[in-house]
């Protein structure tokens, strides 16, 4: 049994070109706000998504700019998967498959460029899980709990008169 979703998920499809990262970030931040996260947390989730997509572009698609990436945003209500509502993001690509257990953050005491993306994603999100899908590509699922005191989901910031 899976948790009930408060509203229909939002799906965004982009090509693996870095110029579309800003589009995905904007969509993430707006969805997070609707889902009940505050502005700082919404920005952080946008950053985590950016890092995940950059990894797909650089490693999954090895820099090719015309490959598909599917992103799904959802708010999951309390249920068997957890006592708090949560924001869930799924990223599906069709690139190289890797061993999910080999994806780990590097030692931050080592000063060198690169390798910070996974650390940032793990710092921002509560749960991260990669898995292989079919014969090609990976799916990344990232979850961030929404504090119970946060605003309710689904509002558009306007009341009907």
């Amino acid at each position: 049994m899976t948790s009930r979703s408060a509203a229909a998920p939002v799906m965004v499809r982009i090509l693996s070109d870095p110029k579309y990262l800003c589009v995905a970030r904007s969509a993430a931040e707006r969805f997070c706000t609707l889902a009940g996260l505050d502005a700082a947390s919404s920005h952080a989730v946008g950053l985590a998504l950016d890092e995940a997509l950059a990894n797909v572009i650089r490693h999954g698609y090895e820099g090719r700019c015309n490959q598909p990436i599917h992103i799904e945003f959802d708010r999951v209500e309390p249920g068997p998967e957890g006592p708090d509502p949560a924001l869930r993001i799924r990223i599906r690509d069709y690139g190289c498959q890797v061993d999910a257990s080999a994806i780990n953050p590097r030692d931050l005491d080592e000063l060198r460029p690169g390798g910070l993306g996974v650390h940032i994603m793990r710092s921002v999100m509560d749960e991260i899980r990669w898995r292989r899908r079919g014969l090609t590509g990976m799916e990344l699922e990232m979850t961030k709990r929404i504090a119970p005191s946060a605003g309710s989901a689904g509002g558009c910031g306007q009341e009907r008169s």
Binding site: L21, R25, E51, A54, L111, R112, P113, G114, L116, G117
Partner: peptide, 16 residues
Amino acid sequence: NYMDSSGVASLVETLQ
């Protein structure tokens, strides 16, 4: 108004 880890990496490399 926005920087990700690729921007930070550029600064780390410059720092070195």
